[in-house]
């Protein structure tokens, strides 16, 4: 009797498994594997959506793989999709170094590979690369913040919310911030306060709260990711510092990603600048290059495409807002 129950459970679980997979048939359709590292923030969700939708619109079958922030798992997944005989692979790598190793694996198997958003650390492998330089974009956003600070005619107290130290993007953004710090040494009333967030909203909340308590004069705040704005709001609001630009209590605020929240805050006038990667552009050029390679039979296409990226600020909001992916989604929502 017990055995019967067990058998029943097995069947219950296997049947849906079969059903899920039965719907997908092998055909002449082009198949592209999209291996991303994780979908924990809006930026990645939007990036993921941009790529998969563009692929599907082009009549391409997409295989999606989530590596859950593990480079090894991503390597295993890429190997698995190569085994399945995909025509091309697009990855969002965990970091630049693992991107190289994975690209070499694809090169060896003769599958074109595209690397999205995080640059491979060297050019030893052949791959399509579309990247935005996190350091440069962060620097552009912080540069605008610095210009705003100069207008105040006094020294300001800077702070940065740093992402997970195991994430190269976080490290690059921190570097961009530090570059501006070094550029205008006379502008800062104190060395920058670094606030660890581990890319976790709860950690960010606790640490930002402590930092504001320890350094109440902070009036220049850069967050390494836009997804932390709600946290910043909930810390600054009780301190009466969540106010619009031009208010004397305003904390000069900058971010990076260009997500929906950032768009809203820019429009409402809370946010000074955010670094933007042009997600839609990136997805388009990647796709174009990949399809061209597949059609041409090029198994190891090698091309570097830069997304210049830019800082969307209160100054250029009117002219360049449409280039920000978050803005577009924000307007769609509205």
């Amino acid at each position: 009797m017990k055995k019967g129950i067990v058998l029943f459970v097995v069947l219950c679980l296997l049947v849906p498994t079969l059903l899920f997979s039965a719907g997908k048939k092998e055909s002449d359709q082009i198949t592209i594997a999209f291996c991303f590292q994780d979908l924990e923030t809006e930026f990645w969700v939007a990036g993921h959506k941009a790529i998969t939708e563009s692929l599907r619109e082009n009549g391409i079958r997409v295989i999606e793989k989530n590596a859950n922030e593990d480079a090894n798992r991503q390597l295993e997944q890429v190997k698995d999709v190569i085994t399945q005989g995909v025509d091309g692979i697009i990855i969002i790598p965990q970091d630049g170094e693992s991107a190289v190793t994975i690209a070499k694996t694809a090169n060896a198997a003769g599958v074109p590979i595209g690397i999205f958003n995080r640059p491979p650390s060297d050019k030893s492998a052949k791959n399509l690369v579309v990247v935005a330089n996190n350091e440069v974009i962060a620097e552009a956003a912080v540069e605008h913040m610095a210009q705003e600070a100069m207008k105040l005619g006094r020294k300001v107290y800077p702070a940065i919310m740093v992402g997970d130290l195991g994430d190269p993007n976080a490290v690059g953004r921190r570097q961009g911030f530090m570059n501006v710090m070094a550029k205008y040494p006379e502008l800062w009333a104190a060395p920058p306060v670094e606030i660890p967030t581990k890319w976790d909203a709860n950690v960010a909340l606790a640490n930002l709260q402590s930092a504001m308590q320890a350094n109440p004069k902070i009036d220049f705040l850069f967050t390494s990711s836009d997804f932390l704005f709600p946290v910043i709001k909930s810390v600054l609001a009780p301190l009466n510092k969540w106010v619009k630009i031009n208010n004397p209590n305003h904390v000069i605020l900058g971010g990076l990603d260009g997500d929906v929240t950032a768009a809203q805050l820019l429009e409402e006038g809370y946010l000074d600048a955010t670094g933007v990667q042009n997600l839609f552009y990136e997805a388009d050029v990647m796709l174009e290059a990949m399809l061209a390679a597949i059609k041409a039979g090029d198994k190891t296409p090698d091309k570097w495409m830069d997304d210049p990226g830019f800082a969307l600020t209160q100054a250029n909001l009117a002219t360049r807002a449409e280039e920000m992916w978050g803005w577009v989604l924000y307007k769609e929502k509205k």
Binding site: V9, V10, L13, P16, T17, F20, S21, K24, I63, E64, K65, N66, R73, E76, Q77, D80, V81, T83, Q84
Partner: peptide, 24 residues
């Protein structure tokens, strides 16, 4: 892990399938 990769399930349900197999 390998079979789940090969099955090409949507990643939204892959965790649920994985959990179920371990459960069995």
């Amino acid at each position: 892990a390998n079979s789940l990769n090969m099955l090409n399930l949507s990643f939204y349900i892959i965790d649920m399938v994985k959990g179920s197999v371990i459960l069995v």
